[in-house]
Nucleic acid binder design. Structure first.
Length: 235
DNA sequence: GCGACAG
DNA sequence: ATCTTGTCGC
């Protein structure tokens, strides 16, 4: 079943409000915990799909057993677009529906893997940080693109990494998850160290460039979006 | 001032 | 994110 998500009271309306909210919430970030060890407990992927025509957004949360990468729980939520896409403000577009999907799970999420960034963000408060602070859960971000950040080329072997840099600051890591394939861009969200975030990412990529969590969540939210838009528009 | 820019 | 056919390769 798919739950319905509304836009929370007090949700930012303008970019100025949204940026101010990020600056407030950043004070609650916890960056001095290592986080759960890879291969133990649960790992949960979250992702969102949009339909620009109808303004509908669908989110999915998929819980995997961290040791076997088997799916142990799934949930989806549907809502309306809560903010336009603005680079640096992605969280305001995705979080209400993601929270609804997470809340509908009947198992503990454990570590949450986001499709996007955490600390690698203009104000050091990307989607993964935001979701972590709001839920209290350990979170990391694994993105497909380097955004505005720079990095040297990691070695071509799986497991090779290079610092993801914002000027002099290491805000994440370009991590090769498959031999000879474009790296992914890992950054810390909340209550997880960067080393551990990379270890989790490697544990979640035995076969593909992207983490199993992201792949499962991506497939599920697309399915949920199709069903939601099909319901709204009969043939 | 003008682009570029996670999804 | 999303619009989209065929095609190369394991």
């Amino acid at each position: 079943m798919t739950t319905t998500a509304g836009i929370p009271e007090g949700w930012p309306t303008t970019e100025e409000q949204a940026r101010a909210r990020q600056d407030e919430l950043r004070a609650r970030l916890v960056l001095d915990e290592p986080g759960p060890p890879p291969g133990t407990g649960h790992v949960t992927g979250v992702d969102v799909a949009y339909d620009d025509e109808s303004d509908v957004v669908a989110a999915a949360a998929v819980v995997l057993d961290a040791a076997t990468l088997r799916v142990v729980a799934e949930a989806t939520a549907v809502g309306r677009i809560s903010f336009p896409y603005v680079p640096g403000l992605l969280a305001f577009r995705e979080i209400p529906t993601v929270l609804a999907a997470l809340g509908a799970l009947d198992r503990e999420p454990g570590l949450v893997v986001c499709d996007g960034y955490g600390l690698a963000h203009p104000r050091r408060f990307g989607l993964a940080c935001h979701l972590g602070v709001l839920t209290g859960l350990p979170t990391i971000g694994v993105a497909k693109n380097p955004f505005t950040f720079t990095h040297d080329d990691p070695g071509s072997a799986r497991g090779s990494a290079a610092p993801l840099l914002a000027g002099p600051d290491e805000v994440g890591r370009a991590l090769r998850t498959r031999d000879g394939v474009k790296p992914v861009f890992v950054s810390v969200g909340h209550r997880v160290s960067l080393d551990n975030a990379c270890a989790h990412t490697l544990a979640l990529t035995p076969s593909y460039r992207l983490p199993e969590t992201t792949r499962r969540a991506d497939a599920l939210c697309r399915r949920a979006l199709k069903e939601a838009t099909a319901d709204a528009r009969p043939a």
